[in-house]
Amino acid sequence: MNSAAAVATDTGAITVRGVSKWFGSGDGALQVLDNISLTIPSQSVVAIIGSSGCGKSTLLNIISGLVTPERGDVILNGVPAREFSDWRSISYMFQEDRLLPWRTALRNVEFSLEAGSMLRSERETRAREALKLVGLESFADAFPYQLSGGMRSRVALARSLVQEPCILLMDEPFSRLDALTRAQMHEELLRIQQLKKMTIVFVTHDVEEAVVLADNVVVMAPRPGRIREQVAITLPRPRDATEPVTAQQAHHLKSLI
């Protein structure tokens, strides 16, 4: 961390050290996370799975800086979260697409760039590139209601990618899509991840999705949320959810939850 080279290699890496989180205060406080430690190497894809109420979304929100833990630290790109300022290099993709209905696809993608003071022309150029990346350049002027569920999801993905993040956090991003569209989105996501060299951390309740996408799967246990096991997925890519080896791996993960 003391040399520029060390910082550069840390870009996209996430370290979670001894994180505990309570909701509420006093005697009625509910512990949702208990002493979570996790190392996520740069450019890897990590899935967080577990039964509902195990705090997996809270963990993601802590990494994103939306929620601060009572104990422990998060280190992003080699910088402690408290001193971290480059939040625009971290993108968050929600479960719902959250497209603003009064904006066209293009203007929705631009929304990610509007927090700062970027020029409108520059925003538009970058938003068009992001739409092209997800294959929707010809739908730039369409309003959300005119798009299918899969297309809306792609626009949301483009909105997450337009800031050129080094870390992409996703909270069950494709859970509302049908199986076929979801498989297409998986392919798309991995292609873009290779291209843009991003670190991806995502929460899912779908073990097949975890197996198809992730290099590493973090299995969490509930009440209070803690890490039960970390499983490395070494299956060759591209992975197909219908193949026996993939199904077997998924079955193994299911037994751990």
Binding site: S64, W87, F94, L100, F111, A115
Partner: peptide
């Protein structure tokens, strides 16, 4: 949900009002 989205993007309050 939209407010949270703006929050994740660290959008200043007046922009949230406006946008």
């Amino acid at each position: 949900d939209f407010i949270e989205l703006a929050h994740v993007l660290r959008m200043p309050a007046w922009k949230v009002m406006w946008k």
